[in-house]
């Protein structure tokens, strides 16, 4: 062995040195590999966690948004319901005011009749000067009485004909027409309101005084509760439009 040439040992030593170098290189590289693998693993897990967290955040946000939406819809619905309720109330109130429903309340009843006894007496006393028109109730009598009531009465009817915005009281020959339906004595004017005020309105009116002076049988009764019928005619508004809405 000692006889081996030096260059053989040299080669061997050189290669050994190289091997040692490579060995450490491999060791270091491998540790780097392991480290990177660990990092990769951790990184993958961290990435996953982060992405899940962001997803969670998004989902939570969407939950809160959805909740807010639900709330908004619910409140909208509630307001819609409230609106429709108030509208219904308003509508029914308006229907009452418009006279489209039967109504009850305190008020007065004015009963008018043709003065038949007076007519008979006058006819008997002085037939030549007997004027039958002076002893009957005319459309104007009713109209003025209704006008006298108008300011304070909430609802008025004459013989089951409800007085509404389109109502008219006219004389057609020998009969009185209210709402285009014929009336016959006795005439019964019903008015809802404070009975005392209504009575005062009527008694203070010239028409009442005139009728009394002519001894027409007119009678006012205050009632705790009277019932007025609904207006059954048509209420057509073909041409009128709401100026504000338009």
């Amino acid at each position: 062995m000692n006889q081996l040439p030096k260059n053989k040992y040299l080669t061997f030593t050189l290669l050994s040195f190289m091997t040692g170098l490579l060995l450490m290189m491999a060791v270091h590289t491998q540790s780097a590999v392991l480290k990177s693998q660990g990092e990769n693993k951790n990184k993958a897990i961290i990435d996953m966690i982060e992405s899940l967290e962001t997803e969670l955040d998004e989902l939570e946000q969407s939950i809160s948004t959805t909740r807010a939406e639900i709330e908004a819809i619910e409140s909208e619905q509630a307001t819609a319901e409230e609106n429709s309720e108030t509208m219904q109330k308003m509508l029914s109130g308006l229907r009452v005011r418009a006279g489209l429903t039967e109504v009850t309340g305190p008020g007065i009843i004015i009963t008018l009749e043709d003065n038949e006894t007076g007519a008979a007496q006058a006819k008997a006393q002085n037939p030549n000067y007997f004027v039958p028109e002076n002893f009957i109730i005319h459309d104007k009598n009713l109209l003025y009485l209704v006008n006298a009531l108008g300011l304070h009465a909430e609802a008025i009817s004459i013989n089951n004909q409800r007085i509404v915005t389109t109502s008219h009281i006219r004389c057609v020959g020998t009969v009185i027409m209210v709402n285009s339906s014929r009336m016959a004595p006795p005439y019964e004017i019903k008015a809802i309101g404070t009975p005392e005020i209504l009575e005062a309105c009527v008694t203070a009116s010239g028409e009442y005084k005139g009728l009394k002076a002519r001894e027409m049988p007119i009678k006012i009764t205050k009632e705790e509760e009277i019932t007025l019928p609904a207006y059954t005619g048509s209420l057509s508004f073909d041409h009128t439009q709401d100026a504000i809405a338009k």
């Binding site: 030593t13 170098l21 450490m24 780097a32």
Partner: peptide, 19 residues
Amino acid sequence: LPVLGLITGVLIGSMFTFT
């Protein structure tokens, strides 16, 4: 000598941490 070479290689490799 070869053993010394190996050890030297290992030492140098450790010192310089080539990767």
